[in-house]
C-alpha cells in the first residue's frame, strides 16, 4: 500500500519552474529520502504535500484519495525554516500548536505530558521559549511535530541545527514512529543519514525527478563489480595471477600491505577472483566496493547537468 502518490506535478512561479512533471510513489511505513541539490524543488514539493501551495498541474493522492484540508491533521511537518513564538510560554504554545492539528485541549495535555516527561522538559512548562536553550527548543519543535501521531511525517533537513545528541534522539524517535506505522519523508542533503535511515529515495535535480526507487535496488543498479583486495606479496605476482576475466584498476601500498582494486569482467564472480589469487598472494581482506549514495547522487546530478 502506498501512502502518497504524487502524479505529474508541475509548479511554475513567475520566473522559473519549481517542479516539472514530477511523479513519485511513497510506500507506507517507508523512510523516504527526498534528495537533491539546493533549489532543486524539494521544498516546493513538500509545500504541495502540506497543502501550503497548490500545484499548477497534476495531483497528489493520500491513501488513494485526492488531498483534502482534513489530511493536514494526518501529516506532521517540521520545515527547514522553523521556529516558535519566543515570548509565549512553552506549555501554552505546545497546547496551541497541538490544537491547531486537531487535538482537543484535554488530549493535547495528556500527550504533551508524556512527551515532556520523555524528553525531561517538565520543569520548563511555564517558562517562555526565549529562556530555553537551543537544544531544548529543538526538542519542543520535534514534540509539536509528532504530538498528533501523524501517519505521514515530513522532516525537512531534520538534523540541521540539532546538536549530535539531539540529532540521535530525533533519529531514534523517528525510527520508533516508523515501527509504529508512520511513514517518514526525509528531505536532506546529508548523505550519511540517507545511508543509515532511508529505505527508499527520489532524487530531484533542476525541478525534474532523475532517479527513484528502493535504496537496495538503486545500489544493485549502480553496482560496479569492483573488489578491493588487501594482500602481502609483490605487485608482479598479483598481476600475474589475474587473467583476462579481470581488470586491475590500481594498487597502492599501506604499511607493507598492498591494496588493489579489481574489476570482474565477462560474468566472472568474486569466487573466481579469489580462487585465482589464493595460490599467488597472502590475502588480508576482500571487500566489494559499493557506491555510496553520495557517489550516486553526485554522479546523477552531474550527468543531468551536462
Amino acid at each position: 500500500m502506498d501512502i502518497l502518490n504524487i502524479e505529474n506535478i508541475t509548479k511554475n512561479y513567475a520566473a522559473h519552474t519549481a517542479l516539472d512533471d514530477v511523479s513519485i510513489v511513497i510506500p507506507e511505513q517507508s523512510v523516504f529520502g527526498l534528495l537533491g541539490p539546493n533549489g532543486a524543488g524539494k521544498t516546493s514539493l513538500i509545500r504541495i504535500i502540506n497543502q501550503i501551495t497548490a500545484p499548477d498541474k497534476g495531483r497528489v493522492l493520500f491513501n488513494g484519495k485526492p488531498l483534502e484540508p482534513k489530511h493536514t491533521e494526518l501529516i506532521g511537518y517540521m520545515p527547514e525554516e522553523r521556529g516558535l513564538y519566543k515570548k509565549m510560554e512553552v506549555g501554552e504554545q505546545a497546547l496551541y500548536l497541538a490544537q491547531l492539528k486537531g487535538l482537543s485541549r484535554r488530549d493535547a495535555n495528556i500527550k504533551l505530558k508524556y512527551w515532556f516527561e520523555k524528553f525531561e522538559l517538565q520543569s520548563w512548562w511555564k517558562k517562555k521559549v526565549e529562556e530555553l536553550s537551543k537544544g531544548m527548543q529543538q526538542k519542543i519543535q520535534f514534540i509539536v511535530t509528532v504530538i498528533h501521531e501523524p501517519k505521514l511525517l515530513i522532516m525537512d533537513e531534520p538534523f540541521s541545527g540539532f546538536d549530535p545528541i539531539n540529532a540521535l534522539l530525533v533519529r531514534d524517535e523517528m525510527l520508533e514512529l516508523k515501527a509504529k506505522g508512520a511513514t517518514i519523508i526525509l528531505s536532506t542533503h546529508r548523505m550519511e543519514s540517507v545511508e543509515t535511515l532511508c529505505t527508499h529515495i527520489a532524487l530531484i535535480n533542476k525541478s525534474k525527478k532523475i532517479l527513484d526507487g528502493s535504496v537496495k535496488d538503486i545500489r544493485k543498479m549502480y553496482k560496479s563489480n569492483i573488489y578491493e583486495v588487501a594482500y602481502e606479496g609483490t605487485n608482479i605476482g598479483f598481476a600475474n595471477a589475474l587473467w583476462t576475466g579481470f581488470e586491475l584498476h590500481n594498487t597502492k601500498e599501506e604499511d607493507g600491505i598492498m591494496k588493489a582494486r579489481v574489476k570482474l569482467l565477462n560474468g566472472n564472480t568474486a569466487n573466481d577472483l579469489l580462487s585465482a589469487l589464493i595460490p599467488h598472494v597472502k590475502l588480508h581482506s576482500f571487500v566489494e566496493v559499493v557506491p555510496g549514495m553520495e557517489d550516486i547522487f553526485i554522479m546523477k546530478v552531474n550527468e543531468t547537468n551536462q
Binding site: 501529516i75 511537518y77 520545515p79 525554516e81 522553523r82 521556529g83 516558535l84 500548536l97
Partner: peptide
C-alpha cells in the same frame, strides 16, 4: 514576528 521567527510555516501546515 511570525515570519522572522519562522513559525509561520509550521502554522500554515495546519491552517
Amino acid at each position: 514576528e511570525e515570519k522572522t521567527n519562522r513559525i509561520v510555516e509550521v502554522i500554515i501546515s495546519s491552517v
